[in-house]
Simulated assay, not measured.
Amino acid sequence: MKVLKSGLDGAALLVQLRGWAEAEGFSQIGVADVDLGSAEAGLLAWLSNGFHGAMDYMAAHGLKRARPAELVPGTVRVITARMDYLPRATPEGWQAIEWQRLARPADAAVSIYARGRDYHKVLRNRLQHVADKLAAAVGPFGHRVFTDSAPVLEVELASRSGIGWRGKHTLTLHREAGSMFFLGEIYVDLPLPVTAPAQAHCGSCTACLEVCPTQAIVAPYRLDARRCISYLTIEHDGAIPVELRAAIGNRIYGCDDCQLVCPWNKYARRATLPDFDPRAPLGRATLLELWRWDEAEFLHRTEGSAIRRIGHARWRRNLAVAMGNALRAGVDDGLRAALVAAREGASELLREHIDWALGQG
């Protein structure tokens, strides 16, 4: 463990940290201790229930997620950071606009966070800039930056450091910022002063549990990823379970329903960075428009986007399901003809989803 230079005041250093972070586009900074022992039982129960689905890396890392000092030896504190991602031009009443999009079967619904630049890249670089400023102030120190990129209990650390509390949908909530933000961490070997934890304010509200299209939130604070539309359309690389396809509707990458319905998101804040502004046409595309992308266009259109990592094949699989749901709703708009035209040259996996889609209307 490093010792702060003589004369350096921890509280004053935390004020500096917040200033450096704000200059990089972050909205909030906290500091957590590394003792997450009380979270281990819940993590083990979640894994034993198989709620992580095919995300085998979660089971492989095991309790390392709850033991920061094992993940990065020497770690004694975790600096936590929040970055708001609602696009800068988001209008008032944005939730209603998103619900309206979901009610138009021929439109493509992409999760708000994924319409701009890949947040992994944005946060990682800017967190490193904060770490560099800290090193300039205190001298060289051991650290490692994380942005949803390693076995880190992000929500637990965020809760313990005052960034927010764990909502019943399992996402972090803040009384003055809702949940429309990203989390990032810097593991450090500096004994920085910890910040006070956040208190929970969900009360008796169960709106997120009730609205989930696939009932993936099986209990308050408990998510079965195998049923979650975000998992199915992003992490899952096989066939989407037939019994869940209808509930996916026109969601082709991620799902925002539990956040759209959350009362706290009336306080959601706009991003300060242009990185999260939506790229054309992801904020307004139709299913047919996106279906027409060949792999080259998909790669070009999603360059620098989080969407690119699912690949063209999975993208088409998701679109086929949404197109089938549109056909069932009585909307064609050229969807059937497009599916039929693509069937012959499709992979076995895609063909199965196309055949399902064609059978829906």
Rank of each mutant, 00 (worst) to 15 (best):
G10P: 05
G10R: 01
L13S: 06
A23W: 06
G30V: 02
G30L: 01
L36G: 03
S38Q: 14
S38A: 15
G50R: 01
M55E: 05
D56P: 05
Y57P: 09
A59W: 09
H61R: 11
R65H: 07
P68H: 07
A69G: 10
V78L: 01
P91S: 12
A96H: 04
I97S: 13
P105N: 06
A106E: 15
V110Q: 04
S111I: 11
H129N: 13
A131N: 00
D132E: 14
A137E: 14
G142A: 15
V145Q: 12
L153T: 06
E154R: 01
E156C: 04
A158Y: 00
G164S: 02
W165P: 02
R166N: 08
R175L: 12
F181P: 08
E185A: 03
D189N: 15
L190Q: 12
P191I: 02
T195K: 12
H201E: 15
C205G: 10
L209I: 09
T214D: 15
V218Q: 02
P220N: 05
L223K: 00
A225H: 07
I229C: 09
S230F: 12
T233I: 04
I234C: 06
E235W: 10
H236W: 14
G238I: 04
I240L: 12
D257M: 08
R270V: 14
A271H: 05
L273I: 06
P274A: 14
D277A: 09
R279I: 13
P281I: 04
R284F: 00
R292N: 06
H300P: 01
I307R: 13
I310A: 13
A313I: 07
L319C: 07
N325D: 03
D332L: 02
D332T: 02
L335K: 11
R343M: 08
E344N: 11
L350R: 02
H353Y: 05
D355H: 00
A357L: 04
